[in-house]
Amino acid sequence: MAADAAGLVVETSHLTKIYQDRQIALNDLTLGIEPGAVLGLLGPNGAGKTTFLRLVLGLHSPTAGWCQVFGRRMHPNAADVRRRIGYIPTNPQFPRGMSPIEYLDYMGRLFGMTRETRKPKLAKLIRAVDLLPQSGQPISNFTPGMTARLAVAASLINDPDLLIWDEPTHGLDVEARRGMLELIKTLAAEKTMILSSHNLSDVDEVCNHAAVLNKGHLIFHGTLQDLKGKIRKNHYELDLEGDQKSIAKSVQQVKGMKEVISAGLRHRRLELKLTDDVSNTGVLAMVFQTLFDNKVTLVTVRSIGMQTETAYLDLVGKEEQRGFARLYQPQAEAA
């Protein structure tokens, strides 16, 4: 990992962006991104995700506060810092009339890469993103999947230490999306990444940290586990097999346990809600023992819902309800 020794890759302090005194896009955002983190940037439309990314890249100047990348303050002329960043905007557009080879060569020259380093790198990337047959064709004829692959190649041409990808799976079909997620997992082993996404299952799959923005305000920043920890954990579904009477009897016994809040049976599927006061493993052990005693077989057991999505919606919902309270505890949730 080529991050600065013991330093944060990205650090912001009270970062605020107000457009023309009319729109508060980002409000007092303070966070740090450690080397090796894969940060999922979440939030509804207009939450300030793209504004945050543009401030990190130095495409926008902050109205107040500051943003440092690799220990250096970001501003529109910080070209040397941007040499260490690979960026993919949402719906990447390309200069007209260029082929992938010309475009990547242009990108390499924009990073100041000499011919000796640029040419072999672009050839390797075109092969890696599977655009070899189309390498001489105009980009304007490309499908969204091919365009996304080319944008990936462009973001990697300078061998960056930090990757900033704004909705990288946006508009991709299932196969292309899967390929993109696998690529992110591979790159995450050696790079620090910031991924802005609306797709929470993508974030759940590839990220280890999350930052949640709502109306320009950072309402959560921490590990994905911490985010999931903010929701009720003890909610399970158990698919059962066995005699109907035995199943009904065991459900009655489970309902009788004081640690069980509710136990509902529907078509041999038991929905179980446990209290938060005790260890879930102990209660589940008792439930399994009850099932065993009644000769009921357990087919599957799973935690209810998509936890990241639930946690995210919980957070946004709570933030909406806080009203004036958020004025007095601005960093309470984000800590």
Binding site: P76, N77, P89, N91, Q93
Partner: peptide, 17 residues
């Protein structure tokens, strides 16, 4: 403008250049 400018200005070039 837009993402065409993004794809140039987000690389290793200063605004002056």
């Amino acid at each position: 403008r837009g993402s065409v400018a993004d794809s140039v200005l987000s690389r290793g070039i200063s605004r002056h250049q």
